[in-house]
Amino acid sequence: MPELPEVEVSRLGISPWLIGHTITKIIVRDKRLRWPVPDEVHHAQGHTIADVTRRAKYLLIDVGQADIVLHLGMSGKLRVVDSTKQVVKHDHLDIVLNSGKCLRFNDPRRFGACLWQPKGEQLPHFSKLGPEPLTDAFDEQRLYTLSRGRKVPVKSFIMDNDVVVGVGNIYANEALFLAGIDPRRAAGRVSGARYAALTEAIKAVLQKAINEGGTTLKDFAQSDGNPGYFAQHLHVYGKAGKACSRCGGEIKSKVIGQRNTFFCTGCQR
């Protein structure tokens, strides 16, 4: 599943092709995504795109009176292509522009979404989201305060979108390794000083992944078709049985919160 850095890389990739251009046509080939594509998205036709922003893993295309809200789901991809380019299987949606280009959404599993959010209203999907991890609203004090008394594993805690958005499985593993925290430790038993280190690690690993183009996964490539390059820098994710890059010990794996978790018992306490 694309995580926050991959979604941000998609935003950075498509924005120059969209902003300032007028939508001439919306083509919906299959409405059956995670939620049915609302008919209102066709209201975007004739409107100029003012901006492309991101909230958590949602992309918001500002068309003036509303936003087209896109989510990549498990396997969604966005490409900017010539509007005349031949459609392939799972090309469910086109946002056609006056430039002759179109933003094409392909999603084999159909867990992605295309929604409509009028200005001044908020979709329920956004109502309980925590702060963005790369902003000042996310800090160690928030983690420390919200964690008090919590017995849930710290890895599950930082992956909770009510606490902070966008810390998905890959980057939770990596940040906990960098901070030296055992992912199995109860969130309420992590000190404020260690949460300070974890906050810094989360911000660092996410920013590095964005800078380097997102992690290469079979279900993700950048908007220009090139894969990201962060995978080569992963310390623990997917490395069960291999030597720890820091101490040489064996990387272990365990399922936490129904997600594969990777850690070094020598480096993470």
Rank of each mutant, 00 (worst) to 15 (best):
C102L: 08
Y144A: 12
M74V: 03
R104V: 00
W116Q: 09
K89I: 13
V88Q: 14
L78S: 02
H125Q: 15
L103Y: 09
L123G: 02
A66F: 03
P108T: 14
D136G: 01
L129I: 10
C114E: 03
D107S: 13
D82A: 15
E121H: 15
D94M: 05
R79P: 03
C114K: 04
W116E: 08
F126M: 07
P133E: 04
G120E: 09
R148W: 01
I68N: 09
S75R: 09
I95T: 07
D94N: 10
V81T: 07
E140I: 00
K119H: 15
H90N: 12
T145G: 01
L72S: 11
L70Y: 07
G120S: 09
H90Q: 02
E132R: 05
F126Q: 06
E121G: 08
G73Q: 10
G73M: 12
S75D: 11
L143A: 00
G73D: 08
R79K: 13
T84M: 03
M74T: 03
K85I: 08
R142L: 13
Q65N: 13
D136A: 15
A66E: 01
G120Q: 09
N98E: 13
F138V: 00
P118E: 06
G73H: 10
D139A: 01
F126Y: 13
D91C: 10
A66C: 02
K77N: 08
L72F: 14
V80D: 00
L93V: 13
G130R: 04
D82R: 14
E132V: 02
L129V: 06
Q65L: 14
D82I: 06
S147H: 04
I95C: 06
K128D: 15
D136Y: 01
L70F: 15
R79E: 14
S147D: 02
